[in-house]
Simulated assay, not measured.
Amino acid sequence: MSDPSALEGLQLPEQRQQAKGHDAARAAISAQLAERRLPGAILLHGPQGIGKATLAFELAAAILTATGDEEFGRVREQVAALSHPNLSVLRRRPRDGKGYYSVIRIEDVRALREALNHTRGRAGHRIAILDSIDECNPSSANALLKTLEEPPADTTFFLISHRPGQLLPTIRSRCHNLALRPLDDASLEAVISASLPELDIGARQRAVQLAGGRPRRAFETLALAEDSPVGALQAWLRQPEEAPIAAGLQLAEALGSNPQGPDMSFAREIIGDWLAGEMRDAAMQQGGRLRLASASELWEKAHALLDEADSVNLDMKQTLTVIFDAIRKHRALSASPAEPA
């Protein structure tokens, strides 16, 4: 089963099987495994690119070893090759040698369900990994729900999600939910060093700085030029209300000049992370109703503008100029004293 999101030159999650960080989630599943009370479905959710799939395959190898009759090294080899008979993996499938389907289709889910209903190929638990469930369309999500409502015996589903809020509530309610967070800098640097030991220290530190705790994003930074404006965007977002207006205009010009380039792709992720952080911080701030309302409005406005720019091919530089101006105004409002609770 090929991985449509694979990065060239890097190991796939099933080949790594050793996720850095995420100790609490790992410990929770290990304890359930030791007590022989594994959930029927486990939802691993968090930002994209933090190692959720790698952790799922790591846990899958541990479960298959603990409940089966083969030694760990042999099981790891089979998981890496996706050849273990008690392991099923569902991803977007290739489309006749011409790329991949844009979604996980209902026929894919039905094929998975049929495979799980067959007699197991080996002693022990069975594992099904959906990487990612976000890519199910409504029909396939409903088909999956039926399977989760009546799961096969001694089977655990690992559902990988980058956007759990968009999943069917009935799917979330049938899962043991484990929220994963971005890695700390030391763990992230260890991931980079293990995967690219030849990378010089300057490039490695730059990747850590730009990645925001996401190993995948760290590897993607290698496509950026050293003078990429992405670093300037991160610096600007730390205190946008104090930066001169011209700085925002220059950023919009630099990033928007190539809407399909790696700089703009990175910028959109960074802006999205920043907006999510503003929403989260405002929701936790006592008496911060105005800030939360402003952050919510900013979130909707920024995403609507970016979606519109994509759909009708608007000038990305102008779109970013409007978004950056809205961010400055929001932060200026947030800097004023909070209203009484």
Rank of each mutant, 00 (worst) to 15 (best):
M284E: 13
D307Q: 14
D134Y: 04
A41P: 02
T170Q: 01
L10D: 04
W299N: 11
A6M: 14
G46Y: 03
A276Y: 10
W236K: 08
A341Q: 12
A211E: 10
L306Q: 14
A326W: 10
H22E: 09
T54G: 00
I50T: 02
R113A: 15
R26I: 02
T319M: 02
E8M: 09
V322H: 06
S257L: 09
E77R: 13
L275I: 11
H45V: 00
Q166Y: 01
R238F: 00
E297W: 10
I201M: 13
A186M: 10
A190T: 15
S161A: 14
A60R: 00
S5F: 08
A283P: 06
A295Y: 08
A153S: 11
E77D: 11
E107F: 03
I160M: 03
G9S: 15
R91E: 07
C175G: 12
R91H: 02
P94F: 08
D23N: 13
A247F: 11
A203Y: 12
W274L: 01
G212N: 03
S2Y: 00
G121C: 09
G288A: 13
G202M: 04
I63S: 07
K146P: 02
L237E: 02
L59Q: 06
W236I: 03
T65P: 06
E198H: 14
D307Y: 15
A282D: 07
A267L: 12
L44P: 01
F324H: 11
R181W: 02
A232P: 01
Q239T: 15
S173D: 04
A19P: 03
A60C: 04
I201K: 12
I327V: 15
D96C: 02
A25C: 07
A211Y: 06
G51D: 04
V103I: 09
I201F: 10
I171D: 06
R206Q: 09
A80S: 10
P39G: 02
L210R: 11
A19Y: 08
Q318M: 13
L43P: 09
R126Y: 12
E308R: 15
G46L: 00
W299I: 02
L306D: 15
E71I: 01
Q18S: 05
E300S: 11
V79M: 10
L12P: 06
A309F: 14
P4Y: 00
D273S: 09
A53M: 09
L188N: 03
A31N: 06
